[in-house]
């Protein structure tokens, strides 16, 4: 494998609060090469979001503590970078799409205001400048890229005026504004209908192919993983239990845990019985 853009080695993370403490990541290692789409799957509470927050430098100490490990980005250990330099990377080199759109949008500003401001700061950090009009043009361009039917209306809207899937696409637009090299997306497609989702996934795939974007996608949607990812990491209770190229993982899963995840996916062909009466195996 070529030198990875992002490479995590032996990451251990613990939470402590009110005298309780709990280790939530155990020796997590993973690689995201440039020009690749990597998926991180695993059950609820297994530590996917914590992993992504660790990469983005968003874990607060306390309650979170990184006990040991390395997170290398282009060869440099992000955990050893001075906070100022670390911060500079966010929103420029690397961006992230959060799981919960409402908590990442400010309810009292329009979408145009919020995206415009983010672009302004990203430009400033990169030593670029753009006029207000140029910024607005870029904002509308990215909103159209994420398949908004009416970018002007969306730009002028406040978050409450948008549907769940529209908000999610605003977050994706936000992350793409400054053309990052690494995009980490936590459940980027869950709030979207499958047709729109397919178009967003296609957009990301094109960015990976044409611009060398590296994508780390966290998702519960195994169908999406099978149809779009190159490589998959499976996590359970804070441990990476299996990793393999996507095609291999679905045709020949090695771990029981992975097999049980795949078995639990409802099938488009129907025939699944729910309820204790239908007791699935």
């Amino acid at each position: 494998m070529s030198e990875s853009l992002l490479s995590i080695r032996g990451l251990n993370v613990q939470f402590s609060a009110y005298g309780r403490s709990q280790q939530v990541l155990h020796d997590v290692s993973l690689d995201v090469p440039a020009h690749s789409q990597v998926a991180l799957v695993g059950e609820s509470g297994s530590g996917k979001t914590v992993t992504m927050k660790a990469i983005m430098g968003l874990l607060r100490d306390p309650p979170a503590r990184i006990l040991s490990g390395e997170i290398r980005y282009e060869g440099r250990d992000l955990l050893k970078l001075p906070p100022r330099e670390r911060k500079k990377l966010n929103g420029t080199e690397m961006s992230m799409v959060f799981q919960d759109p409402m908590s990442s949008l400010n309810p009292v500003f329009t979408i145009a205001d919020q995206l415009g401001t983010i672009l302004k700061y990203a430009d400033r950090r990169l030593g670029r400048s753009r006029s207000g009009r140029e910024r607005m043009a870029r904002v509308l361009e990215v909103l159209a890229q994420v398949r908004m039917r009416d970018p002007e209306r969306v730009a002028a809207s406040y978050p409450v005026m948008l549907s769940g899937g529209m908000r999610q696409r605003v977050l994706i637009a936000m992350a793409l504004l400054s053309e990052p090299k690494l995009l980490i997306a936590d459940e980027p497609g869950t709030a979207l209908d499958v047709t729109t989702q397919a178009q967003i996934l296609k957009l990301l795939k094109d960015l990976v192919a044409d611009r060398g974007l590296a994508l780390l996608m966290i998702t519960h949607n195994l169908g999406v993983v099978r149809e779009t990812s190159d490589y998959v990491y499976v996590m359970n209770k804070g441990v990476v239990v299996e990793h393999a190229p996507a095609a291999e993982l679905f045709s020949a899963p090695r771990e029981d845990y992975t097999r049980s995840l795949i078995a639990a996916v409802p099938r488009l062909t129907g025939g699944m019985r729910f309820g204790s009466a239908g007791a699935r195996v």
């Binding site: 609820s44 709030a191 519960h220 195994l222 639990a264 729910f274 009466a277 699935r280």
Partner: peptide
């Protein structure tokens, strides 16, 4: 239920749907 299980992994989702059916 407005997308009640979109934030859930498939095994928890199956359990939640079992529960709803019951």
């Amino acid at each position: 239920l407005d997308e009640p299980t979109s934030a859930l992994d498939v095994s928890v989702q199956a359990k939640v749907i079992d529960l709803l059916v019951d």
